[in-house]
Design a protein around this nucleic acid. Structure first.
Lengths: 203, 203
DNA sequence: TTGATTTGGTACCGATCGGTAACATATAGG
DNA sequence: CCTATATGTTACCGATCGGTACCAAATCAA
């Protein structure tokens, strides 16, 4: 059944200017890398999901590895935004900031769709210690832990460095635990544990 | 330079009966999977490392996925042996058993060659929720946490269930943190943190 | 010694991997 | 309008992936 008339020019699905290819690729990569794992996702799949092709992908990212690094860098950036947010939320109460952090972390660790921390997962998947992503991962993790330590100190809690380490590892553990044990796992009690640990550092 | 004489028959490198192929394959897979990651290692590499070939590998394991599952099952078995060990070490002092656990966990989390918990890493790498390895992982993690809870209860500590969750997540966190942050990371202080948390549950 | 079972070796399968060449098309700026 | 730049399309590269067919050599039990 061949068309007898020239087809009506199809209107673009989104009349507003669509995201530029680079952003679409990054968005597609974010989704696929996080949900399926970095090594499990090929560049073809990313290009297709982004509604483009492999050539355009390689015009914007010189290799899959630097795409991975950029994917993680963006996530680290969102984390910065989050820290700024809780600071703006309670400008003069480090204690409440810590509460916000704990609550958000708990939400994050208990997200049924979640697959833990993308940065930590990447560190597990990318064993090569010279992978371009590793710098991003280490810097982000170190910065997160240090921010937390500053918060604990500002909140006037006892042994703030140790408290920060405890809370940091508790969260890292909860996020990886959510992937190994499914439902009804220790990470369901994350917030309560965090509160108990904080309480044990009260003066 | 062609050989002028027929070569002396090479003696086997190990005169004693060598490990059977199945064990060699499992040993090779353990080493490679743990150090490089499961998805990063192909069956060819495993067979070659095991000093055999792909055909023999597939005669003993119907697929790479069941080889992975068996690799993890063995590790879970070694964990059972460890629990039996610390129980035999201090038969009538749950408190000392907990001390042994903490010390061993600390050694494990701070091993510079280590790459964290192989079971947890596998959970991160194998996102497919119907992968044969996932049952092994979940059962092992759940059993570990429950053993720890029993130990905390027997040791007569306050809120043993919560304490077990805290220590469990602390260890999970330390092992994943060792991979993301390199040296000088919170997991260096793992044992001290564990002791502090235990102390906060003292009656 | 015979016969059955277990290995090793090699070549191969289709699929996919990361990455590129070449060319056509669209878009935008002057 | 012309030109430069960004994007789309297609086909391809060599390498590797997980998995198998086939046969020879070794091993072992009877």
């Amino acid at each position: 059944m061949t068309p007898r008339f020239s087809p009506v020019p199809a209107e673009p699905l989104t009349p507003v200017p669509v995201m530029p290819p680079r952003e679409r690729i990054l968005a597609a990569a974010s989704d696929l890398f996080y949900r399926q794992g970095i090594r499990a996702v090929g560049v073809d799949a990313i290009a297709e999901t982004a509604g483009t092709n492999k050539m355009t992908l390689y015009r914007h990212f010189e290799s899959k590895d630097v795409l991975v690094a950029e994917y993680l860098r963006r996530l680290a950036g969102k984390s910065e935004v989050f820290w700024a947010h809780i600071q703006r939320e309670h400008p003069d109460s480090p204690r409440k900031q810590l509460g916000s952090w704990l609550e958000a972390a708990g939400r994050d660790a208990n997200d049924p769709q979640g697959r833990g921390c993308a940065l930590a997962n990447a560190a597990v998947e990318l064993a090569e210690k010279d992978h371009p992503a590793r710098r991003v991962i280490e810097e982000h993790k170190r910065a997160s832990r240090d921010r937390l330590a500053k918060l604990c100190a500002d909140a006037g809690l006892k042994q703030p460095e140790m408290l920060a380490d405890e809370l940091f590892l508790l969260l890292e553990g909860a996020r990886v635990c959510a992937q190994s044990i499914g439902a009804d796992s220790p990470c369901c009690r994350f917030v309560r544990m965090g509160e108990a640990i904080i309480a044990s550092h009260e003066k």
